[in-house]
Every structure is written in structure tokens, then in C-alpha cells.
């Protein structure tokens, strides 16, 4: 079962990543090519996913849109993980008032709905890729910070950390040698789980018209644009971008699930024997 999930997820993800990396540079198809004579054609062999209301090929725009989504997802997840791990590790390792201060900061951020906070961040800049990445990254580090802090708190009371203190190790040495390697698998898992979340967030911002500029293909802007024709019964301009959001995020979540099982405590205790 786990093996089937691993292979399905890995295959889908590999196909998607290959499509996203290989199609744009290798083909000279123009995703912006407007052909009003061909607008809103249902799926045909020449346009497998049909065309949108400006006659652009939906499949090609989906691939370009996913390219943007994956880029935002991966970079934003990295930003969120680095910020979250740093804050969490500092809070956990220092303890006392720095811990209380940092955690109240986390609570303050968490008390604002993060879509609202994300909208606030993108609203300060012109629409584009980097404001979206900043918006997603700066609103999603909270759970990682809590997770890393909890892990560091439990680790710093372990006898091996106490033995290291007694052996004259500095705080820095203990952090680098004992704490960070122990927290890394979990922080990495959190980062991978963050990628789908970030993709959804980017799509939501673009759907609201706050993410990518309208002409640039993004899954969110495509669904936003396809909404109008949906009422007329033209389902393909919204369905296919929707699937392009759902299927890769499920594949990433599937891989993360397999990883989580590998580092779960039950598995770890088996290794100890």
C-alpha cells in the first residue's frame, strides 16, 4: 500500500516536473497566442484541453501556470521553513524571555487569518512573482516555528545534551552538532508539506486578482478567467487548471506521507533494537 502510494506519487510528480521543465524551452509554442476564431473550443486532438475565451491552448497554459505555481510553492516553502526553523530553534534553545517574546510574536501572526495577511503583503507591491513568494513565505512559517521549538525543547533536556554541556561544549556547538541534525528531518518534512499549501495559496491570491498579472498564465488566474464561461456550460477552461492544482499537490502530499512514516517514532524505536 505504502509502496503503491510512493510509486504513484513519484511517477506523477516526475511527469509533472519534466513537463514543466522541458516543455517551455523545447517547444516554440506560444502560450500567449491569441486566436479569436478558435475561442472556447472543446477538447479536440489539436487542443487536448480545449481553448479559452481568447483562443489560447489550455494545456499549454496549464503547463506554464504550473511552472509558476511550483516555483512559488518550492521557494515560498523554503523561505517559510528557514524563517520558521530559525525562530523556533532560537526560542527553544534560548528559553526564558526570548522564548516568550518570540512565541507571542508567533501567536500575534497566527491571530490574523493568513490569507488576509498575505493580501496585505502583496498589496504593498506591484503584482508579480516575488511579492507572491514573500506573501506566502512570510505567512506560513508559524507552524514550522512551533514544531521546531517543541522538538528543540524536548532535545535540550536529553542526557546527551547535558553530557555535552558537562564536557564543555558551547551553545553553538551543541546546536550545530546535536540539535540541528536531530530537527532536520522533521523540518524537511514540514517544508515538503508546505509546498502544496503554498501552491494553493498562490492560486487563491491569483484567483482573487492579487497574484500574477492577468496575462501571465497561473493556475489561479486561469480559473479566475475561466469562471465567466463556466456559466455558459464551457467546463474545460476551469476544470483542467483545477486538476493541475489538485493532482500534483496530492502527489507531493503522498510522498510526504511516505516520508513521515519513515521517521515516525514507532519506526525509530524499531531501529533502536
Amino acid at each position: 500500500m505504502a509502496r503503491a502510494r510512493l510509486w504513484t506519487s513519484a511517477t506523477i510528480l516526475l511527469a509533472v516536473v519534466l513537463a514543466v521543465l522541458v516543455v517551455p524551452p523545447l517547444t516554440d509554442l506560444d502560450q500567449q497566442l491569441v486566436a479569436f476564431s478558435d475561442k472556447l473550443r472543446p477538447p479536440t486532438p489539436s487542443h487536448p484541453f480545449g481553448t479559452d475565451d481568447a483562443g489560447r491552448d489550455v494545456l499549454l497554459r496549464c503547463v506554464y501556470g504550473l511552472r509558476v505555481s511550483l516555483l512559488v510553492g518550492v521557494v515560498a516553502a523554503l523561505v517559510a521553513t528557514v524563517v520558521g526553523s530559525t525562530v523556533g530553534a532560537l526560542a527553544g534553545a534560548l528559553g526564558g524571555w526570548p522564548d516568550r517574546l518570540l512565541m507571542r510574536l508567533v501567536d500575534a501572526f497566527a491571530s490574523v487569518p493568513h490569507l488576509l495577511l498575505g493580501i496585505f503583503v502583496v498589496a504593498m507591491f506591484r503584482p508579480g512573482l516575488w511579492p507572491v513568494i514573500a506573501s506566502v513565505g512570510l505567512t506560513h512559517w508559524l507552524s514550522t516555528a512551533r514544531l521546531v521549538r517543541a522538538e528543540v525543547l524536548s532535545l535540550r533536556e536529553r542526557p546527551y545534551v547535558e553530557a555535552a554541556i558537562s564536557g564543555g561544549s558551547t551553545r553553538w556547538r551543541i546546536a550545530v552538532r546535536h540539535l540541528v541534525p536531530a530537527v532536520l528531518p522533521r523540518a524537511g518534512l514540514a517544508a515538503v508539506l508546505m509546498v502544496p499549501h503554498a501552491i494553493w495559496h498562490e492560486s487563491a491570491l491569483s484567483f482573487l486578482g492579487l497574484g500574477m498579472p492577468g496575462h501571465q498564465a497561473s493556475l489561479g488566474t486561469m480559473i479566475h478567467a475561466g469562471r465567466g464561461s463556466l456559466l455558459a456550460g464551457d467546463w474545460w477552461p476551469t476544470l483542467f487548471p483545477g486538476l493541475f492544482i489538485i493532482v500534483p499537490t496530492l502527489a507531493i502530499a503522498g510522498l510526504a506521507g511516505v516520508w513521515r512514516e519513515r521517521i515516525s517514532p514507532r519506526r525509530r524505536s524499531e531501529l533502536m533494537l
Binding site: 536529553r158 542526557p159 546527551y160 547535558e162 558537562s166 564543555g168 541534525p181
Partner: peptide, 26 residues
């Protein structure tokens, strides 16, 4: 802990009860 001067805390060697918990598994 860390606030003790290094020269002082290294004068005292410690061995704990549970070896499994006392050695970094990595």
C-alpha cells in the same frame, strides 16, 4: 549549565543512568 564557566564544568565528569539517552544516536 552553559552559564557555568567551562573550566569549572569540565572539572566534573558525569555518567548517566540510561546509556541510550546519553549518546547522540547520530
Amino acid at each position: 549549565r552553559h552559564r557555568a564557566p567551562r573550566s569549572l564544568r569540565t572539572r566534573i565528569g558525569v555518567v548517566f543512568q540510561q546509556p541510550r539517552q546519553s549518546a547522540d544516536p547520530r
